[in-house]
């Protein structure tokens, strides 16, 4: 028998303007390190991290996307299968905050209706260069009924927390669905995964 390495697989997506720190956030979360220079993300990148929540081993499959408009056709095709989306702006960059609205619209158009969303105001370590107040971040999150957090990939603030809260929200959702419909959650083990392409996500139909 193949050893079961995890109980659930969640597919997450990082979106937001270019330069807000998506790649750094993901690197901090997956490798617990910060590198100030990352090559620009072209297309889509991918990392895995397994976390434990409520006694369950949850494998997070996290997709990092390129922010520039040119890549939207290529990146929006990933929205559909995502169970959670982290929407990132940069607290030192007004434009990236204004664009959150645009990104939210993108989610509405391309993602599943019940996708869990979370807004992250990144680079909160740069207090002297802050342009977007925390209150404004909270306000927009409240308006759209979305979770919100300020983070710093550099100073390692709230990174773990952001991912685990998002994962927990998905877990709540799948758990409630589970009681309604058994097929909504796919419990996978390594062996299953080898055979079946359907394991990829429980959301693609």
């Amino acid at each position: 028998m193949a050893k079961k390495t995890y109980d659930l697989l969640f597919k997450l997506l990082l979106i937001g303007d270019s330069g807000v720190g998506k790649t750094c956030i993901l690197f901090r979360f997956s490798d617990d390190a910060f590198t100030s220079t990352f090559i620009s993300t072209i297309g889509i990148d991918f990392k895995i991290k397994t976390v434990e929540l409520r006694g369950k081993k949850i494998k997070l499959q996290i997709w990092d996307t390129a922010g520039q408009e040119r890549f939207h056709t290529i990146t929006t095709s990933y929205y559909r299968g995502a169970m959670g989306i982290l929407l990132v702006y940069d607290i030192t960059n007004e434009k990236s905050f204004e664009n959150i609205i645009k990104w939210l619209r993108n989610i509405d158009e391309h993602a599943n209706e019940d996708v869990e969303r979370m807004i992250l105001g990144n680079k909160c370590d740069m207090t002297d260069k802050r342009i977007v107040s925390k209150e404004r971040g909270e306000a927009i999150a409240r308006e759209y009924g979305i979770r919100f957090m300020e983070t710093s990939a550099k100073a390692n603030i709230n990174i773990e927390k952001a991912f685990s809260e998002l994962a927990e929200a998905i877990l709540d959702q799948t758990a409630s669905k589970d009681s309604n419909n058994e097929n909504q959650v796919v419990v996978v083990d390594r062996k299953n995964q080898e055979k079946s392409p359907a394991y990829r996500s429980c959301c693609t139909s």
């Binding site: 090559i39 072209i42 297309g43 889509i44 991918f46 290529i74 095709s77 392409p197 990829r200």
Partner: peptide, 21 residues
């Protein structure tokens, strides 16, 4: 194909950057 690994997962970057990354 079986695993659902589409070319855009990797070859988008390979081709558009002429493999420079």
């Amino acid at each position: 194909k079986e695993q659902g690994i589409f070319p855009q997962y990797y070859s988008f970057r390979w081709i558009s950057l002429i493999l420079s990354q």
